[in-house]
Each structure stands twice: as C-alpha cells, then as structure tokens.
Amino acid sequence: MATDSKAPLIEIEGLTKRFGAFTAVDNVSFTVSRGEVLGFLGPNGAGKSTTMRMLAGFMTPTAGTARICGHDVQTDSVAARRTLGFLPEGAPTYPEMTVEAFLAFVASIRGYGGKEAARRIARAIELTTLQGVRLQPVETLSKGFKRRVGLAQSLLHDPPVLVLDEPTDGLDPNQKHEVRTLINQMAPEKAIVISTHILEEVEAICTRAIIIARGKVLADATPAELVKRHPSGKLDDVFRNITQPKAA
C-alpha cells in the first residue's frame, strides 16, 4: 500500500521496450491516481499490451520503470503484483478448470483461505454475473463468459490498481454495459487502466484518455478535451487524426 494517499497509484517513467531494432514502446511516462479511469487507446501494434505487460511485471523493460502503489515492478515485483489486478490480453484461463476451481486457485495464491476465500469468490462471481456457470469448465464457456472469468480473477482481491487489457472485447452489448457499470462503480476507490478499441467506451467510462501509436504517447487529455480537437466533435475523427498524421 502507498504510504502517501495522495501519491499516484501507478507511476510510469520513461518506459521503453525494444525487440531487436523495433521499438514497441518508446519512452512512455504517465501517472494514474486513485479515482481515475484511464483509457489506453491506439491502433493494433501501437504498444498498448506491451506497456501493460511491463506494468504487470510480465515483460522486462529495456529502459525506464514503473511503480504500482510505490512498489517498483522490477525490483519489488511480487509486492507490486499483490496490489494489482491484471486482465491479460485475451483473458487467458486454464481451460480444464471449472470457474469456481479457477477462482479458488487464484484466491489461494493471493493468500486467502477458508471462509474469506469463499466470500471473495462469491463476490467476484456476483460482480461479473457468473453464477450460472460456476461449476462449468472454462473451456465449455462462450467468449463473453471467459472474458468475465478473467475479470473476476482480477477483482478477487479488491486491488487498489486495476489494469485491464480489452475487458469488453467479445462481450455482447448487455454484457458490455454491465462491465462498464461495474468499472464506474469501482472507479472512485481505484486507479484503473483499460485498453480498448471501442471509442464510445472511452466517453462512457474514462476520466482520461491516452492515445498511443508506434510506441509513443501522442495525446493525454480528458475525453471532453479530446473531442474538441476535431471540428466534427467525434472521438473517431480525433483518433484517426492523431494516429495517422500524414493521412489527415
């Protein structure tokens, strides 16, 4: 936990990742404080997932670093991950496990046992409306359910920091609405980063948006400010303008 409650929960400083000659993430810096929902936007291959993976301690940065609740993701990795709820891209889960067994596994790794684990699993299942499929193996579930199992896993320990890579991908409109409502409910207590391709989502739930392309941060503003950057007042046009400068 952060000692100073005003300090940003996520601090990213000069984060860079190179794969050979290719720079996937180029000197990215930003902070996210409690109460903020940051929308992370960019074309495919812009470096969104790579940035999130470095934040979650899965990839080692070439340069720069990040801190979660004051814990450096490289030198104090386990402590950083304890305060983080992370939904990896594609929401991977173990296919042969049932939803409940999978959540029980994550709960025990997170240090919960007995009644406390049962209570947290029940709560996560309720938040993500998975009650009907509790005892089904994950591999038998539809894409939308799988995504929610991944989301339930990231919420289990009620973390102060949530990093969600495309949390609404593959959900139907009702499910998308539910997940957005859920994120809105949690927003005041947490620092949340979500990546998405759905721009209306940014306007619906994000307090701030970062547009990234070719590994660089090209815009960092509130959605309301961003839409003013194009005469049409549409985020789509702003996005296109920023990420394809030559075509504009």
């Binding site: 301690g57 386990v78 402590a79 983080l84 991977p92």
Partner: peptide
C-alpha cells in the same frame, strides 16, 4: 500457447 503463462506469472509468485 494458451497465454496462461501471462496470468500465472503476473500473480504474486516468483
């Protein structure tokens, strides 16, 4: 292959 390595190694374990 499943991508679960990303899940496993971002849990608080070494």
């Amino acid at each position: 292959r499943l991508g679960t390595i990303e899940l496993l190694l971002t849990l608080p374990i070494t």
